[in-house]
Design a protein around this nucleic acid. Structure first.
Lengths: 336, 336
DNA sequence: CTGAAAGCGCTAACAT
DNA sequence: ATGTTAGCGCTTTCAG
């Protein structure tokens, strides 16, 4: 079946391609109603769909945006991606999904591919600051980038962040308010900015309450279930009565370690997480956590990107979302 | 910054665009090493990246494939999507992610958009048979489609399916083998083919063992946590000692209903699921389930699609994956 | 209100 | 071993 082109339509409707083009693109202000109807009919009849390549070639717009994200399998990112896709769609874009596994080589490879695909913009969820120059280059090539989550470069423009330090403070402060004195910390990879920020907040809370902020109680995880599980096994050997797990996904792993040891949350040990995954309210006991609004952040990223693509200039060039304490059942109140 | 084109490269390297084109596309068999090196250098120096539009316009290939999936937030689909993306990438494609929420209007809208984007092929995870004519039309337009999961149209080509009937049989058979006599069924939406097939398998197992296969014990869910939770509350009012939950995601919701009722799995009630999500081995107690290999199925879909795109013809035009019983801790052995 | 024609950046015959 | 050139299908001045 030969593909029908704008020329065919023009011929069949007995008009020029210009006219057809105009009615397709809703620029038919100066075209008679008669002609419009006639052209439309031919388009319907032939099932004509304009060729995006040809179109993009002249307009320089692909209506495609790239999304580089560590791993769609992680519920936090899945939630984010879902809302990014929805918002993008509402704004007329399709999104190209790229799982980087947080490997810089993958990110670089994807950036190259996406550039070749002429994406209109990129949303980057990455822990690698090293990408800085790549981002600069993209922007120089007129491909806007918004960096989402996991950045501390407050000075940069076009970023959507979360106040990780405040989140770290909040979680720790809450644990202390419930009477906990031996608080362990199940952190993410140390090289990660979010980890550093959350840790800073944690220490500040400790110090504020005149606790010692030593490093004996911090255990490194990987922001995944497996890492939470393993680190928790170690923590169980200590005298900690509560643990601040740096994300909910690891907390799920921590739960597993705990009930495998025949212990229970929060009776034997209290847990607080960060993220407020959907799952966090489903597991038993329901997880007390600090909400990080993945959905809103994803939407904000698309909105910002859209503004940049449109060439607007009257919008906030950075957004920072605030943490919120969600009290549920995984932290025990200890009386002194 | 003016975008550098193949012409610029040609001029700078003092060759024709053809030559440049050839070295870019590794078709430089007949080009002197000397020239190649010179051209390459210019390309590196200028950071030249070919314009995908122009290229695609003549080659008719976008190296983009569409993925229409109900909801990336569902761990089963996330797993599938992850592996689809990986395999696609290995084969040189990028994937456009579309969440349909299983709504046919969304699917239709996406199909239209994707057609306009000139995707090389489409992987469709959909429950709507009604899409049949759309698929036919895509294929007529030379855009291959492989339908993944949730189909019963064994007669169609280019499908990747799972033997849902066998899965239904297996789960029920196992429950019976453990001595359960009052088995409830927490099914998915009735309109769904997978649901129907699993139900058929379930009934067959019941009949085979001389049990009565009535409908009093079947409760409809939605394949999501929420539906599992709600339906389980109802099931708890019956005399069922075991429930066959039609997917693991609902089983997670069912668990919640159970411990909210202060009951426990498997002491008070046994649960078996389908899918074998990653989470299924993490929750407490670990879920006994029937494995459905989402990752493998996703990969198989990409491989098949690739074959069709390439115009090959010596490959299996349908693949059916087999269920596998994964025994863990959520089913109690009842002695008679 | 409508049409002619240039050109977007690239590939692939076809020449040489 | 390398160059010339004709499109690919569309949008967009510029004319009328």
């Amino acid at each position: 079946m030969k593909k029908v082109t704008i020329k065919d339509i023009a011929k069949m409707a007995d008009v020029s391609t210009t006219t057809v083009s105009m009615v397709i693109n809703n620029k038919a202000n100066h075209i008679s109603q008669d002609t419009i109807v006639r052209v439309m009919k031919v388009i319907k009849d032939t099932n004509y769909i304009p060729n995006g390549f040809a179109r993009s070639m002249v307009t320089k717009k692909s209506h495609l945006i790239g999304l580089i994200i560590p791993d769609i399998t992680n519920p936090y990112f899945a939630e984010m991606a879902r809302h990014i896709e929805m918002e993008a769609n509402a704004k007329g874009y399709n999104v190209i999904l790229c799982n980087s596994d947080d490997e810089i080589e993958n990110e670089l490879k994807y950036i190259r591919l996406l550039k070749e695909k002429n994406i209109d913009g990129l949303i980057l969820v990455s822990a690698s600051l090293s990408l800085h120059s790549e981002v600069k280059e993209l922007e120089a090539n007129n491909i806007p980038v918004v960096i989402l989550d996991r950045v501390k470069q407050y000075e940069k423009e076009h970023i959507i962040i979360f106040d990780n330090r405040k989140a770290g403070y909040m979680a720790t402060d809450y644990l202390i308010s419930q009477g906990h004195e031996h608080i362990a910390c199940l952190i993410g990879p140390l090289g990660n900015d979010s980890t550093q920020e959350r840790l800073l907040g944690h220490k500040k809370a400790l110090l504020t309450h005149n606790y010692r902020a030593n490093t004996e109680r911090v255990f490194e995880g990987d922001y995944k279930v497996e890492g939470g599980y393993k680190a928790m096994k170690e923590i169980l050997k200590t005298d900690a009565t509560a643990v601040f797990v740096f994300n909910d996904y690891m907390a799920i792993g921590a739960y597993k370690a705990i009930y495998e040891a025949n212990l229970s949350v929060p009776e034997d040990i209290s847990i607080i997480g960060i993220d407020n995954l959907y799952l966090s309210s489903i597991i038993n006991p329901q997880l007390t956590t600090i909400e990080q609004p993945a959905a809103l952040m994803g939407e904000a990223a698309v909105k910002m990107l859209h503004q940049v693509i449109k060439g607007h200039d009257s919008y906030d060039k950075k957004a920072c979302f605030d943490p919120k304490l969600i009290v549920r059942d995984s932290v025990k109140l200890i009386r002194e």
